[in-house]
Design a protein around this nucleic acid. Sequence first.
RNA 1: GCGGGCGUGGCGAAAUCGGUAGACGCAACGGACUUAAAAUCCGUCGGAUAGCAAUAUCCUUGGGGGUUCAAGUCCCCCCGCCCGCACCA
Length: 850
Amino acid sequence: MAERYNIREVEEKWRKAWEDRNVFHVTENSSKKKYYVLEMFPYPSGRIHMGHVRNYSLGDVVARYRTAQGYNVLHPMGWDAFGLPAENAAIERNAHPKDWTYENIVAMKVQLKQMGLSIDWDREVTTCAPDYYKHEQKMFLDFLKEGLAYRKEMIVNWDPVENTVLANEQVVDGKGWRSGAAVERKKLNQWSLKITDYAEELLEAIKTLDRWPDKVRIMQENWIGKSQGCRFTFNVTDSAETLDVFTTRPDTLFGASFAAMAADHPLAQKLCDGKDGYKEFVAQCQAMGTSEAAIEQAEKIGFNTGYFVDHPFVEGKKLPIYLANFILMDYGTGAIFGCPAHDQRDFDFATKYSLEIIQVVAPADGSKVELPYTDDGLLVNSDFMNDMSMTNAKAAAIAKMESMKRGKGITQYRLRDWGISRQRYWGCPIPIIYCDDCGTVPVPENQLPVELPYDVSFDKPGNPLTHHPTWKHVQCPSCGKNATRETDTFDTFFESSWYFARYTDPKNDGIGFAKDKAAYWLPVDQYIGGVEHAVLHLLYSRFFTRALSKCGYMDTPEPFAGLYTQGMINHMTYKDRDGKWIYPKDVMKDENGNWIMATGNHEPVTAGRVEKMSKSKRNTIDPQDILDSYGADAARLFILSDSPPDRDLEWTEAGLGGAWRFINRLYSLITEKKDFALTKAQGAPSDAAKKLQQKAHQTIHAVAQSIEAFHMNKAVAKLRELSNAIEEFKPESDDDAPFYREAIEYLVRGLNPMAPHLTEELWSELGHKTLLVQTPWPDINPEFLIADTATIAIQINGKLKATIQLPMDTIQEDAEKAALEDDTIARALDGKTIRKVIVIPNRIVNVVAG
RNA sequence: GCGGGCGUGGCGAAAUCGGUAGACGCAACGGACUUAAAAUCCGUCGGAUAGCAAUAUCCUUGGGGGUUCAAGUCCCCCCGCCCGCACCA
């Protein structure tokens, strides 16, 4: 009987071996092809969760596979260490954000190491450390010089009780999550980055990202939201005021029946100040929240200003001006004209306020349509544009506007500039000083970093940096008078927008990273993370790459050449008798298969839907428990096995057990039979041995392809097939031994990226003195990939009736003949007329008969 | 509301190009081993009908229609679920 596989001992042994020999440390090496594998770095919350396990297992497979393929692989890790949870911890448990964060990093690093990841820990990066953020303060100053950073008023969610800005997630039903006070939309002066300068470039370059998921590319395209249209000016009737509007449908101008602007439009205030109901309407709009979803789903309401604009093309025609809750000040000019006949939203609005509905587009075939009609057609009721196509009418309307000097055709983007100011403590200080005399003064570079003070208190609502007795009080760098620091900190997306570059040169004190090192390693060849970052983080990083290039830091066009977005981890949910959520570890099945409490009186438990693991539903599994009891390899193997990585995965104890059994079976299979495998061949091997060899080569080929396509589940399935074949194989003589051994070794080597500890142990059991982690990917004999016979399916009228074996590439006539001679087929065709026979070589013969 | 995705056995899934649907695994069931259980090993396993049986026939990829010699795959319509929509990371 073979020894039982001792997970803990073996896994620790090999992790130590790798660490002792520093095998994951890399440096630039121009003689090798580089490969940069990066998983999105974690926020140091204290413990890793299953999402991390999936993310880093996936990345580790890629990294280990590419290493075996001979690439110089960079696979770093770090900490996205600034953020809101640290401040919440400070408020809730009186822990200092810095101490809390660093303690979490220590704890999580232990856990990540326990996973056996092939990480170069010498490159570890921590974004809340001054030696990291001082470089981004410098970058910000460079952006300022280049005109990429500026200050402007922006709308925020404001909690009037806490005196603080709220994140969208902190707004629940329009109320502050902690205070319960109604959230206001407030304008604050904030720093922004000019990402809109790159709108067109960012959009265009999406085309070059051919190794990104279509889903993410579409999301980014929509986010940038390019639209072609016309911007023109209305004159307010009997007034000197004007109203600029933007429209993508200038062709429908003759169907215009009202103008509408955002409630916070500057003109709105001028026209409506003091009017009955105006203040209430503005308040109503502000209460709605800032998200587009909220705005679009809210009922469309308006406020009649009592003013009119003159129709630019129709002498004497006047359109009423409304304020409307669905117009965003941030988009376009903050004002539109409404054409109810050809826009659903305008139609709803016009119906509600009994406004005119004029059809100006009709289907080309003249058929009657129900309004609103938003499809293509020809213009009607439109003066000089009558009978034009929509495209021509758009051009004609724009041309007319231009000739009247009232407007012009423009390209509009939905993308807004990136507001980076946060009124929070635990972030990177913005290196700016405000002086009464000199105005806004950048902190001189030799005074960087502007470090966060440690001695802060969270007693008062608002930003601790503002309350700090001394921190913000400084001398103006230019005139020396008393001045104050900017107390806002950067959005934490700032740190994650360049960390991938920092990894290429993590210890550089003088600059964020050296140009030549970035040039060697970037772009990231394979980036892996959650789809929740599809837009913001990824778009900001793409922008940063361009902005940093403009400032002379680097020359890489795109940061991430390949992107893979993984699915979520789900688990069944459980509730006890009182309807309270309970953890899976507190639940068990009784002898009848019913769910019961694992403790106490074993009260019955209601099992609910399978949902995303979340703390609130308590359907989480702590990876630490799994690592301790089943080991890293079983956890990795299971998480890679059953589901394709881009789909959601249901974590089940049983599935994990399957992975664990596989590991143990493989261990005993190989340790029991290795002696035979070591014997020397004398004569010719058996056919079965040759077949096994072929299978081994085919498997390795399939595994390589699957890994490259991120089908880790298929890679594992193929390896299990090979493992089954090895188990079933009955060696006939010592002559089969080398073939047997090769198959075993190929299995071990192919499985290495998924289960590195087990395979390293088996490699050593097989007598190797080298480390498997440093062993190249197995060679594949191309001859073995080609089968010599083909299984041909024979169909009658498209339905399978029989299969036959034929030599590979049998010519069509012979295949047809063989098919018709088959007993079953001959019988089935008895009395029928053959009308046609379709032969697809090596695949199918379809007899059409009747 | 807008945008995107998904839907295949009891379950997770596979099926490079339109060409043998269900690889691989989980669960379940039957058996071996055991005083017993666990573990392990062997076997069965989409559904229906007929048959003692080998087997045969039919049905089956959310639903309906279409294209094709052939559809899980392509086209049209419908249903259900999930995700994103600018201060969570």
